[in-house]
Simulated scan of single mutants.
Amino acid sequence: MPLALEDRLAIAELVALHGHLVDDGCLDRLGEVFTQDVVYELADFGRDPLVGVAAVAAAAVALGDANPVAHHVTNVVVTEAGDGRARVSSKGLAVRADGSCGSVTYDDTAVRTGDGWRISRRTVSARRTPLSTPPAPGR
């Protein structure tokens, strides 16, 4: 069954909530965004995956002043994936204290839980070059 408009809106708001919680230091509320066993993939940054909400929160605390002062998310695309899941692709912008900015792509799997939609898997990929060339068909 296709995702209802209400589900699409709830998922888009879920993705947006992450930046508000992190920027406000409300790391104890990350369970409102992620499943307790979330897998947060950071291989593109040379890091092992974070597993679980507590690990995601601890990583943010460990970054300390290296954290961005603002996380912004945009270009949210939600695709129904079956079995109470949705694929979500979005763009993230991080503004640092020195005014520099970085861009990432978030590839998320959202799952319907008893508490509403939550992200069960997030892969964060850095945007380092303009106009990336997609892989050739069959590759």
Rank of each mutant, 00 (worst) to 15 (best):
H71F: 14
A57I: 01
P68G: 06
E80R: 01
V73R: 03
A55F: 08
G52R: 05
D83C: 04
A54V: 03
H72W: 13
G64W: 09
L50D: 02
G82E: 14
V76T: 15
D83H: 08
V78S: 01
P68V: 10
L50I: 08
V73I: 15
V56E: 00
V78N: 00
A54F: 09
D65K: 07
V76Y: 02
H72V: 13
V77Y: 10
V56K: 00
V73T: 13
A55L: 06
V73P: 00
A70G: 01
A62N: 07
A81W: 02
V53N: 00
H72A: 12
D65C: 04
V61Q: 11
A60H: 08
N67G: 04
A60L: 12
V76P: 03
A62F: 09
V53C: 13
V76W: 07
A59W: 02
V56R: 00
G64L: 08
A54H: 10
D65W: 00
A81M: 02
V53T: 11
D65R: 06
G82P: 04
T79S: 13
V61M: 13
A70R: 14
G82N: 07
L50N: 01
G64N: 05
V77E: 11
T74F: 11
V53S: 03
L63D: 13
A55K: 05
H72K: 06
L63R: 15
T79Q: 12
G82R: 10
A55V: 06
H71L: 09
A60P: 00
V77Q: 10
A59G: 08
A62T: 07
A81N: 07
A54W: 04
D65M: 06
E80H: 14
V53Q: 00
A60D: 04
G64M: 14
A70D: 06
N75M: 07
H71D: 05
P68A: 09
V61W: 10
A62P: 01
V78A: 02
G64A: 11
G84C: 09
G52C: 07
D65Q: 10
L50Q: 09
A81H: 04
E80G: 13
V53Y: 05
A66G: 09
A57K: 00
V51S: 07
A81P: 03
V73G: 02
A62M: 10
G52F: 09
G84D: 11
P68W: 06
G82W: 08
D65G: 07
A57W: 01
V76L: 06
V51C: 13
